[in-house]
């Protein structure tokens, strides 16, 4: 169903803006969003389709219009990936820092904020 790529969908700033509006203001239509973003309805509709295909938005017919809303579950994969990759890099950079400073203690308690 959601064969699209949520990371790719969110790599585009216009699509992120569209998604921001959906998250902030709730469900909306391509026509309304086009007015808010000052781009064509057709362009917005394309972006919305892509967002829906990637699983980060979903559409529902309401009368004669198609309404789109942000889809929370679609963000979970992204959150999980970011958390894992970030944690891995923090681990690697910790080791890197230690390797370049063999004589310094590497205790977290040494941390203190500058004033």
């Amino acid at each position: 169903m959601h064969e699209g790529d949520p990371f790719g969908a969110l790599a585009d700033p216009t699509r992120r803006h569209i998604l921001e509006l959906l998250v902030r203001d709730g469900p909306s239509t391509a026509t309304v969003l086009a007015g808010q973003l000052d781009i064509s309805r057709q362009a917005v509709a394309k972006h919305l389709q892509l967002l829906a295909g990637a699983g980060v938005a979903e559409s529902a017919r309401v009368g004669r219009e198609t309404r789109f809303e942000a889809r929370t579950e679609g963000f979970d994969d992204i959150r999980r990936w970011l958390a894992r990759v970030e944690s891995d890099w923090q681990g690697r950079l910790d080791l890197l820092a230690r390797s370049l400073s063999p004589t310094e203690p590497t205790d977290r308690s040494a941390d203190r904020p500058d004033t």
Partner: peptide, 20 residues
Amino acid sequence: NPSPEDVSLPPEVDVFVDLD
């Protein structure tokens, strides 16, 4: 629910370390 800030930046990891 995702907050608006969640989608305002590209989904990428960005970390740094300051080395002596």
